[in-house]
């Protein structure tokens, strides 16, 4: 007897086991009727299927939801540190402004392209 024949024999036996108790059948019927009351009757034209799938999975799984929340918090924390490190502080900006205003060089010199070129060439 090959695998398929064996599978079909088992199927025949299992099909005979479907005479369930009336109480179980009643509960299945109730479950079916409840499901039917919530049937979606139209297909949405646009749907964020991936978002729906992710939210659906997280909603039913507290462990995954915890991991997702932890991951989100970590990403936000890293983004915050990155922002803090790469944003000049008020004191640094004030120092640059003070240096510019107090230097002997007129402010307009910084807007002069020739001065900019000279500055680049004069750098070692």
């Amino acid at each position: 007897m090959n695998e398929r024949e064996f599978g079909l024999k088992i199927k025949q036996q299992l099909d005979r086991s479907l005479n369930l108790e009336p109480g179980t059948l009643a509960q299945l019927k109730r479950a079916r009727e409840q499901a039917l009351t919530r049937q979606r009757v139209t297909e949405p034209a646009f749907a964020l299927a991936w978002a729906d799938a992710i939210v659906g999975r997280l909603w039913g799984n507290p462990a995954s939801a915890g991991i997702a929340l932890g991951g989100t918090a970590l990403i936000l924390a890293l983004a915050g540190v990155n922002y803090w490190q790469h944003t000049p502080s008020v004191e640094e900006i004030a120092d640059i402004d003070a240096a510019l205003l107090s230097s002997d060089l007129p402010i307009n010199a910084y807007l002069d392209k020739s001065f900019d070129t000279w500055l680049k060439r004069s750098q070692p």
Partner: peptide, 23 residues
């Protein structure tokens, strides 16, 4: 477990009807 199995079937039916009832 009988009750757990019924819960599983009920959840599955609800999910099918709510998400794919219009398929």
């Amino acid at each position: 477990d009988e009750q757990a199995a019924l819960d599983v079937v009920q959840d599955s039916m609800l999910k099918l009807a709510e998400k794919y009832g219009a398929k």
